[in-house]
């Protein structure tokens, strides 16, 4: 299964984004980055089991600030 990690700017966005993705039927979880990521803000991200690009599109449509995406066609 594809997995993507979507990087967000705060724990608030991480929880809100996870809930939005779950409401869209996606498997989403909060994760903390494994290493120092000053460029990615809070270090929290949303792990998605599935289509990372679609998850990112959903989040941005709900005004969740996405700082980047790792895996599943992301950077």
């Amino acid at each position: 299964m594809n997995q993507a990690r979507i990087l967000v700017g705060s724990v608030t966005f991480a929880i809100q984004g996870r809930d939005i993705l779950r409401a869209h039927g996606m498997r989403a979880y909060i994760e903390r980055g494994k290493g120092p990521q000053p460029q990615y803000g809070c270090g929290y991200s949303i792990r998605v089991d599935g289509d990372g690009a679609e998850a990112q599109r959903i989040l941005q449509a709900h005004h969740i600030k996405v700082l980047g995406r790792v895996g599943a066609d992301g950077a």
């Binding site: 700017g9 705060s10 724990v11 000053p38 460029q39 803000g41 809070c42």
Partner: peptide
Amino acid sequence: GGTGNASA
């Protein structure tokens, strides 16, 4: 002060 994000 500290907010837990954008710490750099």
